[in-house]
Computed example of a mutant assay.
Amino acid sequence: MAYEVSNLDIKVFGKWDTKVEVRDPSLKKYINLMPVYLPHTGGRHEHRRFGKAKLPIVERLINNLMRPGRNKGKKMLAYNIVKTTLDIIAVKTGQNPIQVLVRAIENTAPREEVTRIMYGGIVYYVAVDVSPQRRIDLALRHIVTGAKDASFNNPKPIEEALAEEIIAAANNDPKSFAIRKKEEIERIALSSR
């Protein structure tokens, strides 16, 4: 007798449901909430244009944790950090941690940034709209950077720091590094219009 598993039975880490609401319509296409038990695709997206949009959002967070430094290339360590972080978020907020993560990404994704334009040897800074793919990349990068900075030379473990950063970003708390960074990027873009 074969046991069939439908997509409704699959939960991230065996615990968290991916039935999540994405409020930002521009990010809806790029935040992949496809249910996967193990968020580890092994780089199958690598050689396709916009392939990382097909990666589950939890795996993109895991991949961002593997930035150069202490965790470079250690995917299992990053996997365990995110797994523990999601448990901490669920205990602290009482909500689905995937939903909290999506709220944090929506709140910390900058809508406008600055680019350099050289014109006759003179450099101008011009405000430009940010593509949805880059918005998610920047949001995840700032969330992870804030967590790493909070736990560096500090007895607080990275799991707690990441959970606090995600919760603060989801609540639009100005104590969050990612929220401050987004506001700084948008303020600079506003001044260079």
Rank of each mutant, 00 (worst) to 15 (best):
E186N: 10
N63F: 07
Q133S: 06
R111F: 04
P174R: 14
D24V: 01
P97W: 13
K15D: 00
S191F: 00
I98S: 02
V114D: 04
I166L: 14
G51V: 09
L65P: 08
K74V: 05
H45C: 10
E186K: 10
I81S: 08
I117V: 15
V126Q: 15
V126S: 07
I179Q: 08
D17G: 06
S131R: 13
G94E: 11
L38G: 00
R44M: 12
M76Q: 05
N7M: 09
L65A: 09
N63G: 05
V123M: 11
I185A: 12
I167W: 12
Y79A: 09
Y30N: 12
I122T: 15
K54W: 08
R111A: 02
Q133F: 11
A109E: 02
P110V: 04
L8G: 11
F50P: 01
H47A: 12
G14P: 11
K19R: 14
H47E: 13
P174G: 06
E165G: 07
R44I: 13
N172P: 00
Y125P: 04
I57A: 01
N107T: 05
E184F: 09
K54G: 14
Y37Q: 12
I105K: 00
I136Y: 02
Q99L: 02
K156H: 03
Y30C: 08
E113A: 04
V123W: 05
P132C: 00
G69H: 05
D129I: 04
K175D: 13
E59M: 04
L33Q: 04
K148C: 06
M34C: 01
Y37H: 12
G120I: 02
R141C: 00
K11F: 13
N7F: 10
T145N: 09
N71Y: 15
L86T: 01
V100K: 09
D129Q: 12
P155K: 12
E59K: 03
I167C: 10
R70N: 09
L61R: 07
G94Q: 11
L162M: 08
N153A: 14
N80H: 12
D17H: 08
R180I: 04
P35R: 01
P56R: 04
A139F: 09
Y3L: 14
I188V: 15
I179S: 09
V128L: 08
Y79N: 05
G146R: 07
V102C: 07
I166W: 11
F13H: 07
E106T: 01
I62M: 06
I188C: 03
S6V: 07
S176E: 12
V82C: 00
I88F: 02
A169T: 07
I117E: 15
A170M: 06
G51Q: 01
F152H: 11
D173M: 13
K175V: 10
I31N: 02
R116I: 11
V144H: 10
E183Q: 15
E164K: 00
E160R: 05
Q99G: 03
P25V: 11
N7C: 03
F50C: 04
V82H: 04
E46L: 13
R180T: 03
R180K: 15
L65S: 08
K148I: 14
N7A: 14
G146D: 10
Y124S: 03
E159R: 03
I166V: 14
N80S: 14
I167S: 10
V100W: 11
A150D: 12
I89W: 02
P174D: 13
D137I: 06
N153V: 08
Y79D: 05
R180V: 04
L8R: 13
S151G: 07
V114C: 10
D87F: 09
